[in-house]
Design a protein around this nucleic acid. Structure first.
Lengths: 144, 144
DNA sequence: AGGACTGTAACGGCGCGTAATAGTCG
DNA sequence: ACGACTATTACGCGCCGTTACAGTCC
């Protein structure tokens, strides 16, 4: 069995957690949510992740800032796969996929605007905090 | 009673929700969490918010992007109030407040870095989505 | 008096963290 | 057979959304 997993380059959950920076709990939850389902299991029941699975997990990690639910991320990933070869889709499928992509695109642009606002607010608060911190250390310096 | 609330400019929860953009549920929860407790109540039990309360709520809303818990935001607001007049604090209080402020300042800087990373990732995904969207609409255009 | 508003209480949900317990691997 | 790893189950939390039902205001 070990020979097989090594040949095919399958990883158990611990190594995957190491390489992705995601917790074991998160990996199991992603499977439960249908977001990233490991390609296999050992006879004993251990999850086995392929390199593709890992790539998908990294993609998910990158998508996190978009603020989508896990279900939405699953749909978006599927959408990106399906539209990889648009020629193989029927007219109806292509229209549908395009519409869904457009929606996610819109939400992403909106999210970017929100992130910019958040960053601005964070900067304001940061300078306010630092100013107050200065005032306090100055006040401390002028003590007996 | 109406005369009193109008004289003092006290608002009921609905108007406060309108002006802050926060939901009724959120306002009630913030009170429960000790984050923003309305200055008064009517005899019948309706919450009455002062202009100061509203200002505090808006401050809270601005702080949201920092990713603090409601309890931490409460502490930070209290900290900013207490350090408003550092001269009135004992040496120990000032040291303590300064230390706590420094911690929040550090966390804020960290958060800003994270927001920048998130924004970058969101931009990447956005352009990827838009490119795919282009490919799909182009494919659609070249159909019968 | 009636309609708009507000109160409390309770359940639900997402995205995990955190045990607790038991089984699997090399 | 031993230690390291993993499985499932279940409870908890933060931050609310969402009823359901009852009371308040003008």
């Amino acid at each position: 069995l070990s020979a097989v997993t090594h040949e095919r380059g399958l990883l158990r959950i611990g190594k995957v957690a190491e390489r992705t920076g995601l917790s074991l709990r998160t990996l199991r939850y992603y499977e439960e949510a249908g977001l990233v389902v490991p390609s296999g299991r050992t006879d004993g029941g251990f999850r086995l992740y392929s390199e593709e699975d890992v790539a998908r997990l990294l993609a998910v990690k990158q998508m996190k800032p978009l603020g989508l639910t896990l279900g939405e991320m699953a749909e978006l990933l599927a959408l990106l796969e399906h539209t990889g070869a648009p020629a193989e889709l029927t007219r109806g499928q292509l229209d549908e996929a395009t519409a869904r992509l457009a929606e996610y695109s819109g939400r992403t642009h909106e999210r970017i605007r929100k992130l910019k606002r958040d960053l601005e607010h964070a900067r304001e608060l940061s300078s306010q905090l630092d100013a107050r911190l200065d005032a306090c250390t100055t006040a401390t310096a002028g003590r007996p």
